[in-house]
Design a protein around this nucleic acid. Sequence first.
DNA 1: TCTGGGGTCCTAGGACCC
DNA 2: TCTGGGGTCCTAGGACCC
Length: 499
Amino acid sequence: MPTILHLDMDAFYAAVEQASKPSLRGRPVIVGGIGPRGVVATASYEARRFGVHSAMATAQARRLCPNAAYLAPRFDLYRRVSETVMGRLRELSPLVEPLSLDEAFVDLEAGGESDRLAGLEPAEVAEAVRGIGRELRRDIRLATGLAASVGVAGSKMLAKIASERAKPDGLVVIEPGTERALLGPLTVRTLPGVGPATAEHLRRAGIATVAEVEEAGEAELIRLLGRAHGASLYAMATGRDDRPVVAERDAKSVSAEDTFEVDLTDRAQVRAEVSRLAERCVRRLRDAGRSGRTVVLKVRRYDFSTLTRSDTLRAPTDDPAVVTETAQRLLEGVDTTGGVRLLGVGVAGLADFTQEDLFAQAAAARTADGGTGADGAAAGDGELPGAAAGPTTGPAVGAAAGPGTARTAGGPGAGAGGPPGPGGAVRSAGGRWWPGRDVRHARHGHGWVQGSGLGRVTVRFEEPDSPPGRVRTFRDDDAELEPADPLPLVPGVLPPPER
DNA sequence: TCTGGGGTCCTAGGACCC
DNA sequence: TCTGGGGTCCTAGGACCC
């Protein structure tokens, strides 16, 4: 029965920016890294007509579509819009599995909507879920002003294929019995888990379509791709996909990484950046109320070769000093001559408890001290993080971002629409006035940065519910100009304001 | 002026234990 | 004197996804 729904917001980041900035509606908009090493996160449909797509180097996008608006992402804003959307989905069913800010599965059988579906014939179910999908798309447009595409089918894979076919701004329900005929002629790339490498592998074996995967048979696929991959691929190709919709999965790792605008060659600077990233990673870890045992250092060299080094501690930690120390030690074993393009620090092997809990546990075990009490917590005793690490003070991160630091992440890459990062780290790629950022001018009101440089900043003054606005240029130290929070999207996208 | 940042899962080999 | 088999944990790398 078609009771699994997949929702996918159309060109989400770009669509949010267009809803936020009236002058960009109907125009090509590209959201992503705007520095020399940036890539496209989302291209609006207008930009896609020029051949621009996700994951393309922004430099190439600029060649293909020089007149597009190039904006740095504002994740805080996207997250807020996303929460509105996910809230609508949870009204359909408690079983909602977000895949990203703009995508989610919903199991309609698990929710209130199951009453609407109970006891219906297959054709009636299809009709009923079509109604649910229609209402959902309308609700989301009312609540956010944005277009969503919806697919409904009997499995996750098919629901996702359905929403893909529904794009843009559509609804597709795959009726029971039509699945095989629909899948057969599609390219293997349609199947989840088949990327460029697997597709090439299969192509060399003469397999290009889903039907050919099925003809090859499970044994052959396992021979070609290995046990897990081969078996799951065969199942998918034959339309068998019983993966359940799973709400709220706990994260298994947390990381922070930066690509630099210019490769780092100075070892001291590499060390400083590793400390910065360790701090950032731990901040996220703690925000999530987690701790972890395995510290991972990632290094991408000038030639794009990438390596990781990891170390597993005796007990989970969320101590910045321990993570920093460990990452620095791992760095000592890495040759960075020739230059470093990217650095990353991650923590895996996450535990649900924080360090404070551990200490509390250990303390409780000591006081309780009843014979067998010396297990679990005691195993880590003496190895407790914080106690384990030498220095008790954190590394000197204040020195991390020297004026020479050129970081692709730019303002919003790290802060994502929030404040551009604590401590006034030096930002490149537009600094304080990065393109797309909302601002307020004492006399001209609300607007956004269209561009900056050479001591000037150009602002377009408009709001989500205003007509397209005018552009003015200021000195970038103009006292009347200040950063501002994004305004709500909706009023502007509802019927034109009466003014 | 090629190639982001946040993740997940799988594999393979070695250490170690029973 | 030669040499089990299974299981778990760890490390490193790679494919994939959005």
